[in-house]
Amino acid sequence: MATVNAQQLNDVLASRGLPPIICIFGDTPLLVDDAVQSIRNYAKSQGIHERQRLVQDAQFDWSQILASGASMSLFSELRLVELELPDAKPGREGGDALRSYAEQPNVDQIFVVLGPKLKQEQLKAKWYQVLTRDALVVAANAPDRAALPRFIDARARRYQLELDREALNLLADWYEGNLLALDQELQKLALMGLPQPLNLATVRQSSQDQSRFSVFALQEALLHGQVDDALHRLHRLFEEDVEIAILNWMFQREWQTVHALQQALGRGESIGQAARALPIWKNQEAAYHQVAQRLQGQHRAIIDVLKRLEFAFKRDSGEDYKTLATHFILLWCLPDRVTRLSLA
């Protein structure tokens, strides 16, 4: 089993060609799709034009896997057969079919299996162990925060777009965990015909023009303790049917960053040292330092509201999410003037 990440796939295909079985699993649909498109494009360059797409569902007929290569293609020696496992849970029948295929792969086709990132028990499953034994495995997972600016730079160059270091860090800060939106933003910037390399001010302005009351604009108001702006932007986000999952992620991420900064400062690190180890770039250091100082002693109160926001979002706790989000903003910006919220 050879494992590569999605960004390495084109080079691997160019040097090694198409193996009989390729498995693509990852937590980022954009990168899973990238890998599939890379395989399709390379296959076409090798004269493979016939493709069959299968998607597992409750009524899926697993005999298709063994029968898919029973007849020779009329138009090419090889064809692509893609099997999507939406939950990566083939079950007993599916597991048996995948193992049988892997033990005797059809010489007339390239078999591509794709799905989400696998859990530990799935990685240990017999079907996966046999399927990937001689396969090329592509890990389509999002890069971590430290590697994200490099990823964005490479992605931008696909669209003939060049950004300076601060602009790359801004986009990394805004789009960590949402690479599909990042890709859309890069395509938009490429179409605008702006002078290159794009700098921080240009990227910030173009994004603000595009979505003045985005979740990231709310994050900016929180960072600078602008309570009126933050509440106004929150109200507009709810008017626009904001994706609660993204809003919740932003609240949690900001607190994790501030709490980690408080701990680092408590160990005697300078703000510059602490910021370099966190998703904080240089021109944000002073603002995050102020937030860390302002929220000293508020750990239990912040965690309490974050938990209640999570329960309201995921478990239908009965508490109103918008009210809790409003309280979170007030607690964040004006901790000395806000008492613990009770909605009995």
Rank of each mutant, 00 (worst) to 15 (best):
residue 289 H to R: 09
residue 152 I to C: 05
residue 185 E to F: 03
residue 103 E to V: 08
residue 198 L to D: 15
residue 244 I to N: 03
residue 105 P to K: 10
residue 251 F to D: 00
residue 7 Q to I: 06
residue 280 I to D: 10
residue 38 S to I: 11
residue 276 R to D: 11
residue 305 V to C: 06
residue 81 V to W: 03
residue 10 N to I: 05
residue 63 S to I: 00
residue 320 D to V: 13
residue 10 N to P: 03
residue 94 G to Q: 05
residue 304 D to W: 07
residue 164 D to M: 05
residue 237 L to K: 06
residue 249 W to G: 01
residue 3 T to Y: 03
residue 4 V to T: 04
residue 341 L to P: 10
residue 182 L to W: 07
residue 256 Q to K: 14
residue 216 F to K: 07
residue 33 D to P: 00
residue 195 P to N: 06
residue 170 L to W: 13
residue 300 R to Q: 14
residue 83 L to M: 09
residue 143 P to S: 10
residue 16 R to Y: 10
residue 321 Y to W: 12
residue 176 E to W: 04
residue 2 A to Q: 15
residue 104 Q to A: 12
residue 143 P to L: 09
residue 38 S to E: 06
residue 226 Q to L: 11
residue 69 G to K: 02
residue 137 V to D: 00
residue 17 G to Y: 08
residue 151 F to L: 09
residue 135 A to P: 11
residue 182 L to V: 08
residue 324 L to Q: 07
residue 227 V to E: 01
residue 135 A to Q: 03
residue 23 C to R: 00
residue 146 A to Y: 10
residue 205 Q to M: 10
residue 217 A to Y: 03
residue 51 R to G: 01
residue 287 A to T: 08
residue 128 Y to K: 02
residue 285 E to Q: 15
residue 255 W to S: 03
residue 46 Q to K: 15
residue 118 L to Y: 06
residue 41 N to D: 14
residue 145 R to A: 15
residue 147 A to Q: 14
residue 142 A to M: 13
residue 34 D to Y: 10
residue 113 V to W: 08
residue 225 G to C: 03
residue 132 T to M: 03
residue 110 I to C: 12
residue 10 N to G: 07
residue 229 D to P: 01
residue 201 A to H: 11
residue 26 G to H: 05
residue 208 Q to L: 13
residue 320 D to M: 05
residue 11 D to P: 06
residue 181 A to S: 11
residue 239 E to C: 08
residue 221 A to N: 09
residue 238 F to Q: 10
residue 132 T to F: 02
